[in-house]
Design a protein around this nucleic acid. Structure first.
Lengths: 344, 344
DNA sequence: CTGTTAGCGCCTTCAC
DNA sequence: GTGAAGGCGCTAACAG
């Protein structure tokens, strides 16, 4: 593997001169430049950015630590991150924590060691130690999707507002007994969504008796288990509110097993859209998050910090959610009506 | 940011001794070890892996260059890659080429410069220059999903076989006029799928007149456009074979716009499954690829090469596809039958 | 316009 | 058990 020294030798110049050609920095005569470029081509020289990073203390690498790339919401966020990052010349290292604090911490440690220039982190836990660790090393950080009790840049959706809208929608449809299939208590978005749900019910003067909040995992299995619990109740709620897309799918499956129809027997709404591309027949009423925008915005914010934007005041960007009404929340089955948002 | 020198000073030892403690290499007395460990903790020292990599020439980083993480097939592959990689202590840098050779080449160049230890590449093009570039730098490489005309490790699905099975399935259902909505000619999987389609028709002695292969992009828009073309034909085919999941979705949309029912008016099958998690109601007959396994296998192969497995003989791993028959290919609508593969 | 010197942070080699 | 010297590949800083 050729080094800059080899290039310099072959071109009959000093290494620093070759460096100047490679980085188009400083003055180099056309003649010299030509010779260096020829040497580079002849040797198939590839600059070693590791060495450069050691000197310059910039790796042009961002760390993206999220819970599970398999969830299309995160996939879309990741794509937003990667697009903005690569546009700015940064690479992205991707890690899946599966909501495990241990994994999260291990990843963060390694990525700090690898000198990532900045972090985009979805904390597995409100009390995540990772945030403190990153801040202690003075590495720029943007927290994604969730809040933590610390002064830190954050980009997230308006979970409270979205949940409020979704619950309002159900109330307007005439539902009074609405069960919430929530995520874990330790995750801020779960609690925010519960808060929005409660606010809507409070406003509507719905009895405490008719409120049900169950806490579980943000997974299909979680949604399935919570729904099973709900179905054992008597009287049963007339509507279910799933706190994310996976929970909704699990709930749907449990309902199907119980031979209950949506929306005939029970209405179902959810936070997070399922990607329209992958639903031949979009069906679920949702509060859709702007996932791609979240990734973009967070990365722009992070890159801003890297280029020295004053970070003394942490910024918090809250993106709105979009209520998309589809068939799953309609009293009367409207099997053949065209959907509000098309497959396009 | 504390360095190993700071740690050494504070512990009253030489840097190399601190290094030995950090890497648990060589002999260090318990007393010294304790002092060094205390210093590390007090300073919040984080070892600099960039510096280590410069010396050791190992970055413990793999490059994953694929077309679009937004496609659930690739998401799942990526997850398989990341799981195996992180288990072995490697990080994964993710890049989306969007099937652009230019982007691919740029990414590969940068990642070579960043001294990625190995590459997992989905070549945008059969004649990809990137493969040659990586091989010229003697960096281990596994090609994913597609083949290129070069001696190189490859992990892919049996596209020909899967397409054959799908076409057979349609023939058994009584279809004779089957149109193929293919991907680009430059992509080996597209051509392999066409080959499988042709073999099945040849065997069945289906006339050349009844064969239609259209080439387009592996996207929803591609599927939509190709289907529009098909719909303009007279007589129309009775079945469509989409060469991947996105094409199928685009086709479905075009059919819906034309007020044609699947499978009533026309049958539809596709290569690639849509992730069961995200189909409330799985519907499409497919040849499903083992995406997660593909990611795992490729990464294991790559890590094997890194640890010095003899690479003189390139290996080619071909994973089988799984035919999953669902409603979209049934003549008589069987609206309420339970699906062969459940949502589980 | 070009070159010399030195050092980024770490670890291999060899000596004590 | 421990340490000193040197170098991985590159580029600031300062000459010339």
């Amino acid at each position: 593997m050729a080094t800059i020294k080899d290039v310099a030798e072959r071109a009959g110049v000093a290494p620093i001169t070759a460096s100047r050609v490679i980085n188009s920095s400083g003055y180099v005569s056309d003649e010299t430049r030509r010779r260096v470029e020829a040497a580079i081509k002849e040797l198939g020289y590839v600059p070693n950015r590791i060495a450069r990073s050691l000197r310059s203390k910039q790796t042009y690498t961002l760390a993206l630590v999220l819970t599970d790339i398999t969830n299309p919401f995160w996939t879309t966020v990741a794509r937003g991150v990667e697009d903005v990052a690569s546009e700015a010349g940064f690479s992205v290292i991707l890690c899946n924590t599966d909501e495990s604090e241990g994994k999260e911490h291990d990843y963060v440690r390694v990525l700090l060691q690898k000198q990532a220039d900045g972090f985009l982190l979805v904390p597995a836990h409100s009390a995540s130690r990772s945030v403190a660790l990153i801040q202690a090393q003075q590495v720029p950080l943007v927290v994604l999707d969730r809040t933590v009790p610390r002064a830190v840049d954050t980009v997230r959706s308006d979970s409270e507002g979205g949940a409020y809208q979704l619950t309002r929608h159900l109330l307007v449809q005439g539902h009074r007994s609405i069960a919430m299939l929530s995520g874990p208590r330790e995750v801020s978005t779960a609690m925010d969504r519960v808060a929005g749900y409660r606010r809507a019910l409070d406003e509507a003067g719905v009895d405490g008796d008719l409120r049900m909040v169950i806490y579980g995992a943000f997974t299909q299995a979680g949604g399935y288990a919570m729904t099973k619990q709900i179905l054992a109740l008597d009287p049963r709620p007339t509507a279910l509110f799933a706190a994310n897309n996976f929970i909704a799918v699990g709930a749907f499956r449990a309902l199907r097993e119980a031979e209950m129809c949506v929306p005939g027997d029970v209405a179902l709404v959810a936070f997070d859209d399922l990607p329209p591309t992958f639903l031949m027949d979009p069906f679920l009423t949702v509060a859709a998050q702007r996932a791609y925008e979240m990734g973009q915005t967070a990365t722009q914010l992070l890159l801003g910090r890297l280029s020295g934007a004053d970070s003394s005041i942490p910024r918090e960007v809250v993106l709105p959610t979009d209520l998309v009404v589809r068939r799953s929340s309609h009293r009367q089955s409207t099997k053949n009506r065209s959907d509000i948002n098309d497959l396009s």
